Structure formats: structure tokens, C-alpha cells
Simulated assay, not measured.
Amino acid sequence: MVERNAVLGVVSVALGMVLSPGPNMMYLVSRSIGQGRRAGLISLSGVVAGFLVYLAAANLGLAVLLAAFPQVLAVIRLAGAAYLLWLAWQAVRPGGVSVFAVRDVPPDSPRRLFTMGLMTNLLNPKIAVLYVSVIPQFVDVSRGDVLLQGVVLGGLQIAVAATVNSSIVLAAGGVAGFLAPRPGWLRAQRLVTGGMLGALAVTIAVPGGASHLLAG
């Protein structure tokens, strides 16, 4: 079954990913600010549906692959670390824009909000890499059912993402209003996010780092 360190590792990665600027967060924040909290929550339901699609597709294929070729984890580990470093750079690079910068968006129907949330997530390369290159490295072939481990760890990621994004949707308007006249705070948000992702990338890149993440 899934060990404690794997749970802590996935939760840490999930937090770093969900707090980093990306298509999902930008879409949810823009809808919440431009069309209200209800629109943001409907959009989030579409995003969660996209996570479930990735969870099913990735684990059905990866369960077979990792059981047959455990060495693939080394390649997955390096690819995941490289992508986390790229996300960290996007967050801290000069000229970057905070996700809480106010943007004007036209109103949409609930059906379109859900569909756009779903498609935004399905077409989000960050989530694709998360399920294909990052989460699988926390799977331990020696601990039994690989498919079950993948489902449990993916479920943890979805729970973290849904919880954090719900909080962001509910607070987006107030946060945007607070940060708009404070460019220093917007910059600090980007730097903290980039630092978290960079630290996770370095830990993951070290052999055995994922399984010992936050150990002790």
C-alpha cells in the first residue's frame, strides 16, 4: 500500500503545482473575478472532471508500464524535475505576470463554464506532465498493487487541488483587489511559488529523493 512519505511527497508536489501560475488557476481566477464565485465554482467542477480523466487514463497505462519496466521511473523522475524547474522559472522570470492581475472576461453560461474548465485542464501540459512524469515516481513497485497506489496518490492530488482552488475561487475578488495596488506583494507571490517549485524539483531529481521527501 502507499507509504507515508509518498503521501507527504504527493501532497507537497500538488501544493506547489496548484499554487503556481498556470492555465487552470488563470481561468478560475479570471472567471471568479469577472463573473462571480458561482461561475468560478462551476468552472472548478469542470477542472476536477479533467483531473479524473487524467487519473483514469494515466494509471491504466502506467500500471502496466511500471510493472514491466521499473527502470522507467528514472526517466520519469528526471522529466518531472525538469518540468518543475521550468514552472519555477516561469514564476520568477523578469516580466512575469501574477495570476491575480485583473482581466476582463465576457460572461458565459454554466454549461460553457464547465466545458471550458474541463478543456482548460485536459489541454494543460502541466497536468499531463504531473500525471505522467511526477506522481508515478512516488509509486513503489515493491509495495504491491501499482494501479491502486496510482489511484490513491492521484486522488490525493485531486483533493489538494480542489481544496486549494476552491479557496482561491472564493477569495479571488478580495485578493485581486488587495494586491492590485501592491506590486511588491504580487512579486513576492511569484517568488514564493517559484522557490517552492524549485525546491521540489531538486528533491525529485536526486535518486530516492521522492520516496524520502519530507521524511522524518
Rank of each mutant, 00 (worst) to 15 (best):
N5S: 11
V7W: 09
V10M: 01
V10Q: 03
L15C: 11
M17G: 04
M17W: 03
V18M: 00
P21T: 06
N24I: 10
N24Y: 00
V29N: 08
S30T: 15
R31G: 05
R31C: 07
I33S: 02
G34L: 04
G34C: 07
R37Q: 12
R37N: 03
R38H: 09
A39D: 10
G40K: 01
G40E: 03
G40Y: 00
L41K: 02
L41C: 07
L41T: 11
S45C: 13
S45K: 08
G46W: 09
G46Y: 04
V47P: 10
V47F: 08
V47R: 09
V48G: 02
A49I: 05
F51M: 10
L52K: 00
L52S: 06
V53I: 14
V53E: 12
L55D: 09
A56R: 06
A58R: 06
G61N: 08
G61S: 10
A63M: 11
A63L: 10
L66Y: 12
L73H: 13
A74D: 15
R77Y: 01
L78C: 06
L78T: 11
A79N: 08
G80H: 01
G80A: 04
A82C: 12
Y83M: 06
L85F: 15
W86T: 06
W86L: 12
L87D: 04
L87S: 07
W89F: 12
Q90I: 06
G95Y: 01
S98V: 06
S98Y: 09
R103A: 13
R103M: 10
D104K: 13
D104N: 13
S109Q: 08
S109H: 11
P110S: 04
R112P: 04
R112H: 14
R112L: 15
L118V: 02
T120R: 00
N121T: 13
N121R: 00
I127M: 12
A128F: 15
L130V: 11
Y131E: 01
Y131K: 00
S133K: 00
V134K: 00
I135Y: 01
I135G: 03
Q137P: 05
V139D: 11
V139M: 13
V141G: 09
S142H: 14
D145F: 06
L147Q: 10
L148D: 12
L148F: 13
L153Q: 11
L153K: 09
L153A: 10
L156A: 12
Q157D: 15
I158W: 14
A161S: 14
A161M: 02
V164P: 01
N165M: 14
S166E: 06
S167F: 13
S167W: 13
I168P: 02
V169I: 10
A171I: 05
G174F: 02
V175K: 08
G177F: 11
A180N: 09
A180Y: 02
P181A: 09
R182D: 10
G184M: 03
A188N: 07
L191N: 07
L191I: 13
T193Q: 14
T193N: 11
L197C: 10
G198H: 02
A199N: 03
V202L: 15
I204W: 03
V206C: 02
L214T: 04
